[in-house]
Nucleic acid binder design. Structure first.
Lengths: 248, 248
DNA sequence: GTAATCTATGTCAGTCGGTGACATATGACA
DNA sequence: TGTCATATGTCACCGACTGACATAGATTAC
């Protein structure tokens, strides 16, 4: 890790922190890239070399979360019910937040306040989720041995899971100064969502014929043959693997 | 309705149609506002007097859908289980689509193809939903007699309902030349989602404290009294008028 | 009919987000 | 030290979008 690398990390965080503070002071929309760049004393052009745009400052954390989810999902046993696997993925994100440094925790809290003041941003956040959701659907559909494009059940499972995470994040609106409180509420929300579902509603195998109101079982004869190694500890590994947080 | 008004409507539709065709021809991002304005022989400035931006062209239909949902929701009996009311609201949107003129149907189909080619747009669509979702949560929470800000269950109900609609819209990806086909699949998706939920999972009354998610037979001392009121008038017609959609 | 009025539109200038091209300075390394 | 890679700055540019102002066309009043 040369001097160059460290400086890059430093400036990146400097940009992020300056931007976060500016957003809190004068609002997201009213803050220009030039102002942010000026605060860190860099060229506006350089700003765009660290972040793809203003949005990236605020949505970067989210990329990290999705990455954790995908990793966790892949590490879950293949014969596990899909929503259960997704719940684990959600909890892995929560666990990662707990492990974050004080600086990252502070950034996350600031971020939350910014989101609260700018509904458009939470919209953008959801938009990012929706875009990456497709990958998760593919993963889930592969586990269930169905065609990811046509199987609505896989879509619903993933969509519900992501909705659950979003609700968990959004819900505690007031007086949240502690990150653990947020994580706690998120876990509660996950449990609440799990309780809403009919037991055995998400079978690990292909669609049971009685379930799907539409044509149910087209091309699901091929079982995906994932190694069903029992890697329950893999989630922890995936989460703990690197303590330094990439984007935020 | 003077000549002036009619011309406004005409130019608005002209802009929309020209834009839709351009988007299909050369892609959404590659199409500039100047091109659209040029195609309709309109000043670029005038374009922004009809639409707030390029996004508006593609997300406008969605506003209409949300409006229908809110109206329908308000017209449902207050003691109806929330998700049931939301299902009716969803079906009302579907019914509205069926009633659309051939021109509107054509526009909708074009819109779908555009969405399929631009994942970012479906993201934006979801973003709009998320922004307006708050109003729906307020409505649901009021019905359930709980605080809209702190009650996660209301959030989850709405989020699940909106996810269901989105999945219903997105799912049929290929060879969809008929709007009724889309509507049909959307109805199926709604039914599928309803089937995933635990029976009596969304009581009309407020949250009972100490409700155990793992318990399969929750509180619910106050029975929701389904299908009692006679207010179902138009909306019920909307759902039942073609029984062909109800396939097991 | 004409005149007064209202408004939809066009023109212009400007801001902001974002990108490519090119030159330069600074760290990495022999 | 000198060479090389790369991080940065400068400049020019595009596209989305907005405010200010003038004008042409429709509407109304007389």
């Amino acid at each position: 890790m040369g001097l160059r690398e460290r400086k890059k990390v430093r400036t990146r965080l400097a940009i992020l922190d300056a931007a976060l503070d500016l957003f809190l002071e004068q609002g997201y929309d009213s803050t220009t890239v030039d102002q942010i760049a000026g605060a860190v004393e860099i060229s506006p052009r350089t700003f765009f070399r660290y972040f793809t745009g203003k949005d990236h400052l605020v949505l970067g954390l989210h990329d990290q979360g999705v990455e954790i989810m995908v990793d966790t999902l892949r590490s879950r046993p293949a014969d596990e019910p899909p929503f259960t696997s997704l719940s684990h993925a959600l909890r892995a994100v929560a666990h990662d937040m707990e492990d974050s440094t004080p600086e990252d925790a502070a950034r996350f809290l600031k971020l939350r306040r910014i989101f609260d003041d700018n509904p458009r941003l939470v919209g953008l956040s959801v938009a990012k989720v929706a875009e990456t959701e497709h990958a998760l659907v593919g993963e889930i559909a592969a586990r269930r041995g169905v065609d990811p494009d046509s199987d609505r059940l896989s879509h619903l499972i993933v969509a519900f899971a992501m909705s659950t995470m979003r609700v968990g994040f959004e819900c505690p609106l007031h007086d949240v100064a502690d990150l653990n409180e947020i994580v706690r509420r998120m876990r509660e929300t996950i449990e609440l969502a799990e309780g809403l579902m009919r037991p055995d509603w998400d079978p690990a195998g292909p669609n049971t014929p009685g379930w799907d109101p539409a044509d149910s079982n087209p091309e699901d004869s091929n079982t995906p043959e994932r190694d069903t190694v029992d890697r329950d500890t893999a989630e922890r590994d995936a989460v703990d693997r690197d303590g330094s947080h990439r984007d935020a």
